[in-house]
Design a protein around this nucleic acid. Structure first.
Lengths: 111, 111
DNA sequence: AAACCATGTTAGAAAACCTCACACATTTGT
DNA sequence: ACAAATGTGTGAGGTTTTCTAACATGGTTT
């Protein structure tokens, strides 16, 4: 159901590749994680794994920092943006719920 | 011009992740490369780097092998398919060329 | 039977990654 | 003004991941 998330969000990129892709140092990348701006997954052995979405986010973060914004502030922005996104999601789902109630299949096998 | 290739084709995945993604052994993955079925890039240090497209291809290869097709045969199939694809590309480009000749901007700045 | 196929396994070495800690020049907060 | 926090570099020491090369093996071809 909905869209089964794709390449962009799969966490499959190791930190060295992220370094090459972004131009940031590994130190920076790890530091932004410490400041809770980015959340890689871990391999069983403990290596970090990032997605393309993470890579893009890192670039945005780096840009803001270059503009003098501190990690603390960036984090707040992100939380605000995410909260708004959640609200929007809820609204969308409610509307979808109304539609289903009116026209959706009731308890039927989903296709 | 045309479409600037995306996530699916970027070679950013190391062999361990490919192993986890496909369920194949590293031995198998390297062997299919030896048989010229797959072409990872290399990091400066020599580590293999695969794309999502590669991952999907690997799964297809593995399926065929399970069906008793040998690498040699798979390679031939792939070459055939690729050749056809190239021909199709040429045709498409020729047609595009005709259209440009008739209606395209001549030597102008491309917007 | 000899050659080839597909895969496992092992060994040793190199590359990549991890955490921790110290340093340092700049801000920022009180 | 000064203590605290920021952002980043660097180095040490340790673990994980990857690499190549080789040998082994049970099935297929030729």
């Amino acid at each position: 159901m909905a869209n089964d998330f794709s390449y962009k969000d799969k966490k499959v990129i190791t930190i060295g590749i992220v370094r090459d892709l972004t131009g940031l140092s590994e130190r920076q990348i790890r530091y932004y994680e410490e400041r809770k701006l980015i959340f890689p997954e871990r391999s069983s052995g403990g290596s970090r794994k990032y997605s393309f979405a993470d890579v893009e986010l890192l670039v945005e973060i780096a840009n803001k920092i270059e503009d003098g914004v501190q990690t603390h502030e960036i984090r707040k922005e992100m939380l605000r943006a995410q909260k708004k996104q959640n609200q929007d999601d809820v609204r969308r789902k409610m509307i979808q719920g109304q539609l289903n109630a009116q026209f959706g299949l009731r308890k039927g096998p989903s296709s």
